[in-house]
Design a protein around this nucleic acid. Structure first.
Lengths: 157, 157
DNA sequence: GCATAACCGACCGCTTCAGTAGGATTTGAA
DNA sequence: TTCAAATCCTACTGAAGCGGTCGGTTATGC
């Protein structure tokens, strides 16, 4: 698996928040119940989302969580990265301050990484998919009728 | 990380085999030395490649491994899948006999997976990158001069 | 002041990763 | 025919991450 359930649960949580139109916060408990996920585990995940500035929280009774930005401005690369950590196809990939992607093998006089081209392409494909999908899209998609959804999915393939 | 070092090592191994023009087999030991990887670990990886029909082996003295097909006909989705197992963005994705990708959440009366659209796109991006890259490309890429490689990589971004 | 929430840290069983170790088997060559 | 080189196979191990659970603390509305 490329991603663990942290991404799955976390995205579902975000979608659930995105569904609520009102400005009042949603409690984690109600999200957990709606999505049938363990509350105490969601607490860990939402903490990551909060630290990443994707949701805001209000404490105390009738508290809960809200999206920090409108759903149209939240892209999935930020969400998944907050949950799973740096997204790279391979250990040796780390983003340099400047050029974005570097392979740590290259510096040691070694003649170049034979795999770099491959991982660059994979990286490109993944980030394009994640950055090109907004939370608003997922919210809308999940509230559509089944036939309409099928049509959307066909357009992906 | 999307993939573990199994994919990294395995692809390097394949490239190393692809480099050898002759029809005589290459010993794992020489590959391990050339790529500076632990021989006994490579044994596990090459076993997966063999079982997947990507390499063939000849035992005994002066034995070793060869590509089972010309490098132009070997695409990286087969290689990576042999090493890492089924490639899917999420646990709940499994390929049905017919339709390719299904989400296991959908069957239980639950109204649809809010994440499906996202994972479909990710899946598409990854398989496109993997299936669109041949071993021959990587072999050629890795034997190019540094400036030429840089030009190729620029074209990816 | 009490219920309801967000917060925080520790712990736990399980699986995978990245190797290591040791041996068995096959084969070419001396 | 014996030796060395190689594949093959199984079992083991330490470390890390996954998917939670639990208990407790703090903040807040009623």
């Amino acid at each position: 698996m490329l991603f663990s359930t942290k991404a799955e649960y976390g995205v579902r949580l975000m979608v659930e928040l995105g569904r609520q139109p009102g400005s009042q916060p949603v409690s984690l408990g109600s999200v957990a119940e709606a999505e049938n996920l363990p509350l105490s585990y969601l607490e860990h995940l939402v903490a990551k989302l909060r630290k990443a500035g994707l949701v805001t929280s209000t404490r105390g009774a009738h508290g809960g969580y809200r999206l920090a930005k409108p759903a149209e401005e939240i892209t999935m690369d930020a969400v998944v990265e907050a949950l799973e950590g740096q997204i790279a196809p391979m250990e040796c990939f780390h983003d340099s301050p400047e050029g974005k992607v570097l392979c740590s093998h290259e510096s040691d006089g070694d003649d170049a990484c034979s795999t770099k081209l491959l991982w660059m392409r994979v990286q490109g494909g993944v980030t394009k998919a994640l950055a090109g999908t907004t939370l608003a899209e997922l919210v809308e998609f999940s509230t559509r009728s089944a036939p309409t959804r099928a049509a959307v999915l066909d357009s992906v393939a």
